[in-house]
């Protein structure tokens, strides 16, 4: 499918503008990933040298001033070379992005001192909320949102001494919020969506370490009910999905919640053609299954049978599906 065919799907009134937009996009030749990565190493060294040099000169004093200085310089680099698509432009933008990050860290440090260290989460939340509309870098947005979500979840779990069920519910809410952003294709909020999924994985990790060995089973009943409702609706409408949802319901009852959500993430990533989401979910599934395996309170022989059984079942399902 070429651009002309795509443009046919655009409303006639907007077609000329869309064509001009595509021509503008095609003018820029994207740089390879390897070059970007190598330039980033250089930018990281340059920014690291400068930030640590300043720190060694001024020590822990005047963090506000240093923060303003670095954020301002970073802002200048980002916007001055915004349209420059050459390697030099990219390098300077990367340098600007790292300056901004350094400035934000200094701001957060100063906020911590001002608010008190028990309010780390609030400092991170403020930086994330203020930075999101100001800086368009996906990495910067993700970094601060992920930090804020992780610290907020930690605060919630620690202060209220939440158990496995509450942890599962928090994970479920974070996953649902992230999935909603993906489904609605709100590209501007994709870094936030990834941060929410990170938060979900973070809560899973906290749950595994705090509530072992009886972790993860708190929300199985809820997941199974959700899968059952979906199964009922699927059977009423599209019968083809029935088997898949039935397998999902069994998984929801048997596995731990991070593994179930990772399976849902893989499905979502595939449906939405979001490869990064699918691969991240796969990594989450592997981690979830490893934790699940070690949390099983049975002998190694039974554990091995527990692995072989579903393995054979999967291979059988594959051959049956192929026929």
């Amino acid at each position: 499918m070429n651009n002309e065919q795509i443009l046919q799907q655009v409303e006639p009134a907007l077609r000329q503008q869309a064509k001009a937009f595509l021509l503008e996009q095609q003018k820029t030749s994207p740089l390879s990933f390897l070059l970007k990565a190598l330039l980033f190493v250089g930018a990281l060294c340059g920014a690291g040298l400068l930030v640590s040099g300043f720190f060694s000169l001024f020590s822990a004093r005047h963090f506000w001033v240093q923060g303003v200085l670095f954020t301002g310089a970073g802002w200048f680099f980002l916007y001055k070379w915004q349209a420059d698509q050459t390697a030099l432009g990219l390098f300077l933008r990367q340098l600007g992005g790292l300056f901004v990050l350094g400035g934000q860290i200094l701001f957060m440090s100063e906020l911590d001192t001002w608010l008190g260290y028990q309010y780390w989460w609030l400092a991170a939340l403020i930086i994330a909320a203020v930075s999101y509309p100001l800086f368009r870098s996906s990495f910067n947005r993700f970094f601060w949102c992920a930090l804020a979500v992780s610290l907020c979840c930690d605060k919630l779990i620690d202060d209220l001494s939440l158990g496995a069920t509450a942890c599962g519910l928090i994970g479920l809410v974070l996953f649902a919020a992230g999935a909603w952003i993906f489904i609605k294709r709100r590209f501007t909020f994709y870094p936030l969506a990834y941060a929410l999924l990170w938060g979900c994985a973070w809560v899973g990790g906290v749950d595994a370490f705090s509530h072992a060995p009886a972790c993860f089973n708190g929300v199985n009943w809820l997941l199974a009910v959700l899968a059952g409702v979906y199964l009922y609706k699927a059977l009423a409408g599209h019968k083809k999905r029935g088997l898949g949802v039935a397998v999902g319901a069994v998984c929801a009852l048997v596995l731990n919640w991070p593994s179930v959500l990772a399976l849902a993430g893989m499905y979502l990533g595939r449906r939405l053609r979001e490869n990064v989401l699918e691969w991240l979910a796969l990594a989450g599934l592997v981690c979830g299954l490893v934790v699940f395996y070690f949390s099983l309170n049975i002998s190694l022989t039974y554990k091995s049978l527990f692995l072989i059984g579903p393995g054979v079942l999967m291979l059988w399902a594959r051959s049956a599906y192929a026929k």
Binding site: S299, L300, T301, S304, L305, L307, I308, P310, G311, A317
Partner: peptide
């Protein structure tokens, strides 16, 4: 499926 079966076989002999 292959991963599960392989891991299961290894665990069985290890046990």
């Amino acid at each position: 499926g292959a991963g599960f079966v392989l891991a299961g076989v290894i665990c069985f002999f290890a046990a």
